[in-house]
Write a protein that binds this DNA or RNA. Structure first.
Lengths: 235, 235
DNA sequence: GTGACAGACCTGTCTAGTCCTGTCTAGCCT
DNA sequence: AGGCTAGACAGGACTAGACAGGTCTGTCAC
């Protein structure tokens, strides 16, 4: 229905950081990276980073203090969807549990031609409402394999967040793409994983993130309960 | 349909660039060369290049931004104008016809609390592939009623575009919101309108646009064939 | 232990320069 | 008159660098 607005660099930076804040990846009170660190991450000049931060400050999402840094001042976390669309819960308060199905080193299995790597770190997770057995989301993350992922296969993820592990290794997304469409019918295999009925329509989200240098950070494919999840965007 | 021979240099430039865009050589979101680079490429003056770019901009194929450049805003099938999500056709070239179901003055019927107006201009359209009877989209636009819409009820829309009529009356969207979700089952009434089966899952898009002063310009609710349409976003 | 200090790191601000589009003027040619 | 050329100037986006001043922390002297 629309065309992507050509974005300036500063707008893009504001957008990526805003999504990280709204998704809860950067929680309320958290310190953003320093301006010079963001310069490196987004591969732009400091003036441009500051312009992007200015947008967030104007929206009241962050506050910056001289000599210290910038801090998140927004507490409305949603779920970990990374940058891009804001994933909105259709209902009100919904407590969701997370279950990690598997963390493995394996060949690339999903259909994402942009991911050239033969081997990936694969993390599959379920989210479910605690009172029922039905899973609300099924998320499959694929990250091009690096040797320093080896420990994760034994120890698991810190706080269950793959993004955080990637961040620790300098794999911060600076740009990306996102696709959304309707999966008309849940497959038998996925239905079994999610404790749902095969044939149900689902909302399917695919996201590819890249570093400033263009290297693929992560590819995520999510199946979401259409009753509960929708996409929302302001422009 | 045979194209007439381009008469002027600026027409030739527009023709060449348009072909590159429609062929996919310049994909959606891609940056065109700068005007001075195009001056060198086509060996004409900058004014001529700008005239050619002006033709493309008027067609909605590109958008130019001061200090940055010109960008392709044509994703293969532009359904409607305006910023926000980019609606992507899953398949390749698909020629679609438009049929306007009705243009009426009526009470607000859709569930959009942001639209305070009691009376609206309501435009319902179908889009369909020409060889089949199945509609691919059903779009319902609602615009707060103004007296200068009266003529539209008799004369119809210029080029079938409501956006153009709104633009002519100074109602240019400056900001807005967009929601997307899965409609699990097409209603019997809508199925009949679209020539589809009731119960099919559909992609539902809702968009609310506002002027710079915050007045609601338009509310649109679209049902889209999930096989054919998806959402795409870069960040 | 404590207090002072140096240095590291942070934001705030400024300047000079590049590259881009927007716009205007003057003139040439058919 | 309309299409085109050539040039000039303004202003926006961005880069790169420099400098000042706030804040924190490790270290050293006492």
């Amino acid at each position: 229905m629309a065309q992507p607005e050509p974005k300036t660099k500063s707008e893009r930076i504001a957008r990526v950081l805003e999504a990280e804040i709204r998704s809860g990846f950067l929680h309320d009170g958290a310190a953003l990276s320093s301006e010079t660190a963001l310069v490196a991450r987004f591969a732009v000049s400091r003036a441009t980073v500051r312009k992007g931060l200015g947008v967030l400050a104007a929206k009241g999402l962050i506050r910056t203090k001289v000599g210290i840094g910038s801090f998140v001042t927004y507490g409305g976390a949603v779920i970990d969807n990374g940058p891009g669309w804001s994933l909105a819960l259709s209902e009100g308060e919904t407590r969701m549990g997370v279950r990690i199905l598997s963390i493995t080193r394996q060949p690339m299995d999903l259909d994402a031609p942009q991911v050239a790597a033969a081997e990936v770190l694969a993390v599959d997770r379920l989210r479910f409402r605690e009172n029922t057995g039905r899973a609300l989301t099924l998320e499959r993350s694929r990250v091009p394999w690096r040797e320093d992922f080896a420990a994760l296969l034994r120890t698991g993820l810190e706080q269950g967040s793959l993004s955080r592990e990637l961040e620790l290794r300098g794999l911060s997304p600076a740009s990306g793409e996102e696709w959304a469409n309707v999966l008309p019918a849940l497959s038998v295999a996925d239905a079994a994983l999610m404790g749902r009925s095969a044939g149900e329509p689902m909302l399917r989200l695919r996201r590819l993130t890249r570093t400033a240098s263009g290297r693929v950070v992560e590819y995520v494919e999510s199946l979401l309960d259409p009753e509960l999840f929708g996409l929302h965007m302001e422009f």
